[in-house]
Nucleic acid binder design. Structure first.
Lengths: 247, 247
DNA sequence: TCTAGTTGTCTATATTATTAGACAAATGGA
DNA sequence: TCCATTTGTCTAATAATATAGACAACTAGA
């Protein structure tokens, strides 16, 4: 294990990231026990105190738990598999992870559409859009934070339905959209910003997977633009190309 | 702008990441000029020297260039759009970015298949696989680093063809695979490791988009497993669900 | 009960990151 | 030419990070 010194990222944070990634990938024994602090210090070639700083950070994140005299143990956490396909529905995807798929509405506002939203939804300059922010929870922890944009006039009633049902699919149905398909999904990755760290309860410096989605009705008219942020260490996005051919 | 203090990530690195992300997103003026160091220090609420450390890092990455008396300017760099679909071919995708899509072979070895490779390629324990490592360049810079696994017996001749043509598609064709489709793509994101930082010439602490791919022949038999790493600030992955329905 | 191995806590010191201030050097426009 | 604005380069002090060593507290097994 070689670490980057003078990189602007503290050694203890690099070590914490390595250990977090190593859990469930051969670092722990069958009992979920990590190598001892002394052993980790040897492997990373740092002082034991530096390893302790990394483990303390992981303990704050509830990723590991130290037991005096016994060792440090990984707390099991299942990584969420999140499918990306033509017919991806959040609630159905979450049921496959034996988790409840409910989207809580954080805010619902109207605003003039910015350039990317106008392009995607094919709107005139100055058009008003509905902006909906939602947070989804899995196992009582925040899983994804999303911002959705809809044409304002057509989807007046949508926020209230989403608030009641926790489902955007239900909200769209109430506004006359019986079915819809994904046109495109963009995937980026970057460091989490302040607001996202707070909302998703992440560790500082956490990495986000950011997806940008365009949903169209069956006649191909774009009706929804969404941007979702997932904690990269909690989620794996899965594109199933066979499924996306349609069902 | 609020930064995370005592997070294990130095302020100058957080600022560098913010500025890198802000370029091409309204931070610079029409001439590509960034706000002055004093102005940035005010916005981030840090000392000017801290901003200078961030700008120095970006200058080392060739993202910006400072001119005494004039200001600091962004050096334009186009983000590569990399499509993910049933029929994604690297070389074709790169031509759409007006770049040459050539994969250089870094290494070609035989090894006993590990568990994930065995599962994906449906092999017996102890089976031998061909492991091919390739690096792709765009605009003279490393763009992606990939590791591919093939069943050893069937693809004996593949590495030599890839070495000559720079194309895996050509290598597969030489081994009797006229056409193939992606079965599945997994997408993860994480910090770059040491070897990846070196091979892709990244800044320390850079973020990687990691894709895992399974390719099948037309009868659905898996023939190739690949894992590719992209620098997250150079690439956007694009899943086109309409295209992936087949052509 | 003893012992080896583990985490927890303390002191001390060196290195790096950040802040603070001052001034030099270059640019462009009035 | 003068002036305001910009980046470049010093010095110095403070805070955060990393290393080093010693020992206490606890656990499990011999």
């Amino acid at each position: 294990m070689t670490l980057q010194r003078q990189s602007g990222v503290a050694l203890w944070r690099q070590i914490a990231d390595e250990i977090r990634g190593g859990i469930g990938n051969g670092l722990t024994d069958k009992m979920g026990r990590l190598p001892s602090e002394a052993e980790l210090a040897r492997r990373f070639d740092v002082n034991r105190h530096t390893v302790r700083a990394a483990l303390a950070a992981l303990a704050r994140e509830r990723v590991v738990e130290a037991r005096r005299g016994q060792g440090t143990f990984a707390l099991k956490k299942n990584r969420i598999a999140y499918p990306i396909g033509r017919r991806t529905r959040f609630s159905a995807a979450m049921r496959d992870n034996s988790a409840t798929g409910r989207s809580e509405v954080i805010s619902s506002t109207k605003e003039t559409a910015d350039a990317p939203t106008r392009t995607v939804l094919r709107l005139e300059p100055g058009a008003i859009v509905l902006r909906l922010e939602t947070l989804s929870m899995v196992d009582g922890e925040p899983f994804s934070f999303s911002t959705h944009w809809f044409e304002a006039g057509r989807f007046e009633a949508l926020p209230e339905i989403v608030r009641q049902t926790g489902s955007i699919t239900a909200g769209l149905k109430a506004c006359g959209v019986d079915d819809y398909l994904r046109q495109e999904t963009r995937v980026d990755a970057r460091h989490a910003r302040d607001a996202e760290i707070e909302r998703l309860r992440l560790a500082p410096g956490a990495i986000l997977l950011v997806t940008g989605v365009v949903n169209c009705d069956l006649s191909g008219v774009p009706i929804q633009r969404s941007r979702s942020c997932f904690a990269a260490d909690r989620a794996t996005l899965i594109v199933d190309h066979l499924d996306s051919a349609g069902s």
